[in-house]
Design a protein around this nucleic acid. Structure first.
Lengths: 211, 211
DNA sequence: TGCCGACATAGGAGTTACTCCTATACGGAT
DNA sequence: ATCCGTATAGGAGTAACTCCTATGTCGGCA
């Protein structure tokens, strides 16, 4: 078995650098490259491509979700390991549907990270509490009669819950405010909310965010 | 010792009727009267007055806070026992400052209710987990440098967290929308929030509401 | 007794947030 | 070939909100 090339994308230098240093200590890991956001990561991919990409799901410039989409569209065989703060259940579910290969929290220890990388290389998937949990709620959500939120909608819901204004969110996502409002209206319809207050409560109930 | 006269104000007929029936079984309890809201309660008080008033803090027509204020202003010697759903810490603190004599949740058992009534008659105060808890947070809140929320502000914050619109809230409180916005702005300033999302998060952190 | 500060109230004028309806484009399922 | 779901966005109107100013009340305090 040849060595595993790993790229990491995370906007927090501390996390990123620490991860790079850690990865290099792993026996089976070969080349390691880093990027501060999705755009940088995609730039790296023009020349060569890694076996595994470790991706922070909450990056400012190009969000994790967009990055997953872009990467998998161009290189369907690249494995993706998601770094997530809180285990946002619905979001995890969507990312799994997109073909992501595993999840880690930023508080994971070195052993777990190494285990995840090897599991993904050998079995194509790293199974842990986060992914287990997501299986459970998939069904539950269906039962409520309401349609599922799309990835874009979850992305928007997360930003709303961060106390960002409509302007800020639309600028961040490079869409018009109109489009933002359309999404927001759709989310409210799907979640049975009347306002941002209702949206935040929904996100809390569903574990999309934690208090 | 003569028997204790108790009035109860609660907008939920089930709770109210149940409470009336229960109270009548207590040995030391004499006359029992009921009201569906603060206005009705005050009307009862024109003729005679009870030893203890049991008050639901979340009533639609005339809120519990207003009722407490009105009752104590006219009859400082009447004891007040608050019925509360969630133990909203900051609110409890304020009500204690106003001179309320004890708290019960609606899930309290008959024995606890009887105990509370006797404790208030005999010692002027019913001490339990809810009141204990409020003592603790009083200090914590002071430390943050920000001024305390007033009762009115907490009342408004609660309604905001219920996903009510500005119009609905101002109508409910019989104030102009302008006044509502002034309060809201002040609350945001005091709590360091930028929007309703921030207010809800604050309320959750402080235990003013529960998820 | 008289004053001051905190609180609750509210108007005017302006800005931002948002709804409702309509419409286009694209990619995947049937 | 068609259709549905998704993402995009404009026009026109309404609701929500800010900022500044101002008033009455009440309780404490000099």
């Amino acid at each position: 078995m040849t060595s595993i090339n790993v790229y990491i994308a995370d906007d927090h230098p501390v996390v990123r650098k620490g991860m790079v240093r850690l990865l290099k200590t792993f026996e089976r890991v070969g080349q390691v490259k880093e990027a501060a956001d999705g755009k940088e990561l995609l730039a790296l991919l023009t020349n060569d491509r890694p076996h595994i990409i470790i991706l922070d799901i909450e990056m400012p410039v190009m969000g994790g979700v967009d990055t997953v989409k872009a990467v998998l569209q161009r290189f369907p065989n690249v494995k993706i390991l998601i770094l997530t703060m809180h285990s946002e259940e619905v979001l995890v579910r969507r990312l799994l549907d997109m073909g992501v290969n595993g999840f880690l929290t930023k508080s994971s220890g070195p052993e777990e990270i190494e285990k995840a990388i090897y599991a993904i290389m050998d079995n194509d998937f790293y199974k842990n509490a986060i992914t287990e949990n997501a299986q459970g709620i998939a069904g539950a959500e269906e039962n409520e009669g309401r349609r599922k939120l799309t990835i874009r909608e979850i992305e928007i819901l997360l930003l709303i819950c961060k106390e960002m204004t409509s302007r800020e969110i639309s600028e961040r996502l490079h869409i018009s405010e109109k489009t933002f409002f359309n999404h927001r209206t759709n989310i409210m319809e799907k979640t049975g909310s009347k306002s941002n207050i209702g949206l935040l409560k929904y996100a809390l109930r569903k574990g999309i965010i934690s208090t």
